[in-house]
């Protein structure tokens, strides 16, 4: 599983971070950082929840 964020769409709402803090982190500079671009499968439910929660649909998961 590979996580791709479209940073042209991302508005740093940080809902991804609320759902999968292991993978997504919005820092104090208000930018999103992807901590693991290829997270383990055990995180899939969380990453999928993060992708669904994003108000800008900026997160895609590629297998």
């Amino acid at each position: 599983m590979r996580v791709i964020v479209d940073f042209d769409l991302c508005e740093s709402n940080a809902l991804c971070m609320a759902n999968a803090p292991e993978v997504f982190e919005v820092r104090d500079d208000d930018f999103l950082y992807v901590l693991q671009e290829e997270p383990p499968d055990s995180l899939r439910p969380k990453v999928e929840a993060a992708a669904r929660a994003c108000p800008k649909a900026a997160i895609t998961i590629v297998d």
């Binding site: 940080a14 809902l15 971070m17 609320a18 803090p21 919005v26 208000d30």
Partner: peptide, 9 residues
């Protein structure tokens, strides 16, 4: 945004 999301769980 970051600190807010600590309260979501």
């Amino acid at each position: 945004p970051r600190k807010l999301m600590a309260f979501r769980p």
